[in-house]
Design a protein around this nucleic acid. Structure first.
Lengths: 180, 180
DNA sequence: CCGAGGTATATAGAAACTTATATACTTCGC
DNA sequence: GCGAAGTATATAAGTTTCTATATACCTCGG
């Protein structure tokens, strides 16, 4: 049940329309949440019904009329209550990691290529990440850097074990460590 | 659509019942996925119908008859196809992080307490984490350690800014850095 | 003036996930 | 022999999330 609260949090930084909120969520990687518009619009309706946000329609210079939401006192109260909830580690849901866990059955060269692909993605995310101007961004940066370091270490391990044939004939995978 | 594939991956390590699979998922933090039994059982049924796993009923010494599933060739093929899919960063879904992103509106002492709580959880997870015997576990360890380091750095920052009153009267929060 | 493209809201339908509950079989303590 | 507890499977009901699609308003290029 995070999306409504995340929306309240974002609105606490300034009034916005559903469209705006989607953009803020998608752009701010340090936020830790994202959702589709098809989920955001109904959520805003429910928040409106619940009295947590107020609505003001406003003409747009470049599109249909915007519905701008702003936090009400009740909304601010609800946000603070959410922030006060006890800390808990979430149920792990990390598809790349889950896949990685089984990557061992693939050939080392395929695995190495995969690590390189992943490295490119993580490096790009790190580049896009803004300045470490707040706690969340510092956390994101730290985790991305840790992942990058891990990817490099893993690849080094892999290459040390079975050096990639640069141009010559592929050499047999020798070690009895991972039997087929 | 990860759960069915994760189940196939786990079954590739050895036949198991739904109950077993749940335990494996929950215990192995490095796996990156977990699900309820109520989700696992229907998923296994679907895999059975699809011919990706085969079923053998077996008596148990300490409970109702077990339904043990094993991978079929089709299941193995499907698993490999999943592993071959291109890498992608998932949509971020990290509730603690999302909450953290708005924690700045709380008083520094509350924030520090929160960081300490979180630290305890992460340290416990790190302790439970097994040996770095494969890539997934090494990744998990690296990320948990990075998080721990970040938590410490963050708390240090906070304490440096507004030193906690150890026993004496609470002193006024002075810095104009974060205006209410 | 017409179509393409960006902005903006909206809904339907399906899939995934959570929470709650029911049931069956066994062993063990009493 | 009865209840508690651990093992094991199962389903119902509700919520959340994803995918797909429709529509409206505006600007700009041709």
């Amino acid at each position: 049940m995070s999306l409504p609260h995340v929306l309240l949090g974002l609105l606490s930084r300034g009034s916005a329309s559903g469209w705006d909120l989607k953009n803020r969520m998608t752009r701010d990687g340090a936020l830790g949440w994202d959702a589709e518009l098809s989920q955001i619009y109904p959520a805003l309706r429910r928040l409106l019904k619940g009295g947590f946000v107020a609505l003001k329609r406003r003409r747009s210079t470049k599109g249909p009329p915007r519905r701008e939401y702003r936090l009400t006192p009740a909304g601010r109260r609800e946000l603070l209550e959410w922030l006060a909830e006890p800390v808990a580690l979430p149920r792990p849901k990390d598809a790349p990691l889950a896949r990685l866990a089984f990557l061992e059955r693939l050939a080392p060269d395929v695995r190495a290529a995969r690590l390189l692909e992943q490295r490119r993605l993580v490096a790009a995310a790190l580049k896009r990440a803004g300045p470490p101007s707040n706690a969340a961004r510092r956390r994101r940066r730290a985790l991305l850097e840790a992942e990058l370091a891990w990817l490099d270490a893993e690849r080094a391990l892999l290459l040390a074990d079975a050096p990639a044939p640069p141009a010559a004939a592929p050499r047999r995978r020798g070690g009895g460590a991972t039997p087929a």
